[in-house]
Every structure is written in C-alpha cells, then in structure tokens.
Design a protein around this nucleic acid. Structure first.
Lengths: 171, 171
DNA sequence: GTAGGTGCAAATCATTTGCCGGCGG
DNA sequence: CCGCCGGCAAATGATTTGCACCTAC
C-alpha cells in the first residue's frame, strides 16, 4: 500500500474506483501534476472519469491534508503528497523542470524579517527561478514538472528600453 | 508630472485620454491595484473605458517596463510602478494588507542556495504571510491592498486531522 | 439505506482577442 | 495619412457547481 493510500485511510476518506486510480497515478508520478495532467493519465487507465471528479477529489484531498497544493505562477495548480519533509522549489528557467530543496535558513530568515516589521511568520510562498550553472555538471536532475518558464508573452511592438526581467534578483 | 507619466514618455508610449486616466489612478493609488480595481476607479472618472483597454494597457506598460506585475496567489494580478527600489511583500493574513520591505539578505540567501544546487539565480517570487505581533503596536501600517488572505475554502465536512496550514513555516 | 461520490453540462472568473471604426503624432 | 488605440462582444482556460443518478460502507 502506498503512503498516499495510508494517508487517505487515516483521514477516513471513502475509496471509490476513481479515487483509487487518482491515488495510483499520483503515487507513480515523479513530477508535480496539475488537474489536467492527472486527468489525462487517469483517463488512459479508465476513460470514464470526469475532470470534475479530479478537481473535487484534489480539493478534498487538500482540505484533508493528504495533498499540498502548489502554485508555480503559471495559473495551473499542481499537487504533491502532503507528508513530505517541508521544502521549497527551484524552477529551472531553461526547461521548466523543478528541483525540490530543503533550506531551513529561508524560514528562519523570513521569520526574522517578519519580526523586524512587527509580525509573526505564518508561512510563505517561494519559487526560485534559476538556470543551470554550466561551470559544472548538474548533480541530480530530478522532478521534471513541465512548468512553462516565466517567459514574457510574445506580444511585441516597439522596444525602446533594455530588458530587465523578473523580480529583484537583488544586487 | 508624475513619475509614471515620465516613465511612459521615456518609453515613447503614445498617450491617449484613457491611458492618461489609467496613469492618474495608478499614481494616486496607495495600494497595489488589479485590473478590475483600476477599471472601477477609472470608470468613476470616465464611464466610457473598456476593461479590455485596461488589460491591454497594463500588459503593454508591463512589457515596456513601466509597471511590474505582482501575483499574490489569489488569481488576480496586481501592478505597481516598475521603478521602485527592489522589494518583497509581506501579506497580513488577518486583513489582507500588504507591507513592502527591502531585505537584500533574501536574494543573497537564495543565490547561495541556487549555487549549492548547481544553478545561477535568475529571480524569485516570494510572498511572506504573517500576522501582527500583538506584543507591540505596528510601526506604520501602509499599503492596504485587499488581498484575500490565503484562507481555506469554506468547504467543510468531517475533520479527523489536526490543522497544519500553509507552506513550511519551517520548524 | 443513506450520505457521500460521480458524470455531464452549464456557470464562474480573470484575462485575451477578433473585428472594425477612430484618434494621435 | 496610417498605424496604433480603444470599444464591444465573443473566446479562452482553469476551476467550480447544479442536478440527478449511483455506490461505498
């Protein structure tokens, strides 16, 4: 039995044929899936599953703490198992792959900053955009979640200025 | 002349009646406005401006580096003047207000982390969720951008588990 | 047997676009 | 004058929901 199934049981969630399939696909996926991704894969195993069911199930699983919802900013939510070690995501801007990393310093720093402003840290949302440092081979390219790189829309017209992108990479 | 107008001129953007109004409203706003917010306010000054124009203008202004697009995760984009000092946003989870803050340590830390993973930092997207630390009065409540706090949808049912929320506030 | 789960289609919501007449430089 | 600009309405795309039927426990 997969850990996801176990999680569902612990939450007392009833298991239908479609939920079992959804869990199976999620368990086998090595990337963060969106509702559409999931629907496509589940449909291959059983063509009679509605997208609405996928959405309803994902929503319930998230509310029950079985899944965690991810928002990489490309307007489609992704999901990952909720009981993993807390981590953040680095998005490779060259191919949309996602690397998970643990860095407790981040939360620590943000807590400090929040305190400095008179607040108590409740949580945060962070996406790190980065490109491979060609000065050496990548250690372990993992989670290839096809996140469309934060590219500018093709819309062009004139063009008088230089191109400063993204949010403050800071000096 | 406002700095936004100046920015537009520098970019060689043509100024129509509607663009002038949009710039005026943006300049007067002390919060981060969404297209709908902007449209509502502009409409009060001139009822004949289409939402499509608002969107097209915001898009162009962003492409031209006049405005910066913000995504607070509530599926509506907000905008702020692009020539401000680089900063991040702290979202007050109790009332949706937004506090801007500068913290070069963040970019520095993320650059270090990226390097550790074999990447070069291109940029990042960060939202800090926090609640007022009641142990003292807030210094200066500023930008009250009504961002709907990352609250769980009302959808309730059973409830067997404890409630761990948000992304890793870290241990 | 009954509350909860599911399929289907229609509805939302933010945002985009085609078309076409009108204005700015 | 001419190409960019703006209005309107229809189109998108992700996600949600109303309704009636079906099934897990």
């Amino acid at each position: 039995m997969t850990s996801l199934e176990r999680l569902c049981q612990e939450r007392g969630l009833s298991m239908s044929r479609q939920r079992r399939l959804i869990i199976r696909v999620l368990s086998e996926a090595r990337t963060h899936l969106s509702a559409a991704d999931l629907h496509q894969r589940v449909t291959e195993l059983d063509p009679d599953i509605s997208l609405a069911t996928i959405y309803r199930t994902l929503t319930i699983f998230e509310e029950e703490g079985v899944l965690k919802r991810l928002d990489f900013g490309d307007r489609k939510m992704r999901y990952e198992q909720a009981d993993k070690e807390p981590h953040d995501h680095l998005l490779d801007t060259t191919d949309g792959s996602v690397v998970e990393f643990q860095a407790p310093e981040v939360a620590a720093l943000l807590a400090t900053i929040a305190a400095r402003l008179g607040y108590r840290l409740d949580g945060y949302r962070l996406d790190v955009f980065a490109s491979p440092d060609d000065s050496r081979a990548e250690s372990a390219r993992a989670c290839v979640t096809a996140v469309q790189p934060p590219a500018k829309r093709p819309r062009s017209r004139h063009h008088h200025h230089d191109g400063r992108e993204h949010s403050a990479p800071g000096r």
